Amino acid sequence: VYCTNSEEGCEWQGTINETGTSIDTHLNSCPYQLVPCTNGCGEKIKRSLLKTHLTDNCTKRMVNCQYCNRRSTHQLITSRNHLLECPDLPIQCSNEGCNEKIPRHSLASHNEACPKAIIPCEYNTVGCNKKMKREEQESHNKESMEVHLQLTDGRLQMTKEKLQEATETIKSLKTTLEQKNQLTASLVFKISQFTNKKEEDEKWYSPGFYTSPGGYKMSLSVYPNEDGDDGKTTYISCYISLMAGEYDDILEWPFQGEVTIELLNQLEDRNHKKGVIRFDDSTPDDCKERVGEGLSSNSWGRPKFISHKELDQHNSFSHFQYLKDDSLYLRVSVKVTSRAKSWLNCKN
Rank of each mutant, 00 (worst) to 15 (best):
Y239Q: 05
K197T: 00
E252P: 01
M243F: 12
F194S: 01
E168S: 15
D248P: 00
T175Q: 12
A244D: 10
K171H: 14
Y239G: 01
T167F: 14
D248L: 07
I191T: 05
S212E: 13
D227G: 11
T184D: 01
I240R: 02
G208K: 04
C238P: 01
Q256N: 14
S206R: 00
F255R: 02
T234Q: 11
V259Q: 00
G257P: 04
T169H: 12
I236H: 02
W204R: 00
G214E: 01
E202V: 12
Y216I: 06
F209Q: 01
L177K: 11
S172M: 15
S206G: 02
I236D: 00
K171Y: 12
V188C: 06
E178T: 11
D249R: 08
P224I: 06
V259S: 03
K197D: 02
L220R: 01
K232L: 14
G208Q: 07
F209C: 07
V259G: 03
I240W: 03
T169Q: 14
F194Y: 12
T175E: 13
T169E: 15
P224Q: 07
K174A: 14
S172E: 12
Y216D: 00
N181F: 12
D249P: 02
E168F: 15
W253M: 10
K232R: 10
L177A: 12
T233H: 13
T195N: 11
I261D: 01
N181A: 13
K203H: 05
T175V: 11
K203G: 09
S241N: 13
G245T: 05
K198A: 06
Q193M: 09
V188M: 09
Q182S: 14
I240K: 00
F255I: 03
E262Y: 09
E262K: 15
S241W: 02
L242T: 05
P213C: 05
C238N: 03
V188I: 10
Y216H: 05
K190F: 05
W204L: 00
F209V: 07
A244I: 04
A166T: 15
S221Q: 08
D248N: 06
K180S: 10
G231W: 07
G245N: 04
D229Y: 13
K203R: 03
E226G: 03
S237N: 07
P224N: 04
T169A: 15
K180M: 12
Y205L: 06
E226P: 02
E168W: 13
L220E: 01
W204D: 03
Y223R: 13
M243A: 07
L220S: 01
S221V: 10
S192K: 08
E262F: 11
T234F: 09
E246N: 06
W253H: 03
K217S: 10
S221N: 09
Y210A: 01
K171W: 08
E199W: 09
P254S: 09
G215S: 06
L177Q: 13
K203S: 06
K180H: 12
G215T: 02
S241G: 03
Y239W: 15
D248I: 10
K197A: 03
G214Y: 00
I170N: 10
A166I: 14
D249W: 02
V188W: 03
D227Y: 13
K197Q: 05
L183F: 15
Q256K: 12
S206V: 04
S241E: 13
I250Y: 05
S212V: 08
T211I: 05
S237T: 05
P207W: 06
Y210N: 06
E200T: 11
Q256D: 14
K174R: 15
T167C: 11
Y239S: 02
K190R: 10
T195C: 06
T176V: 13
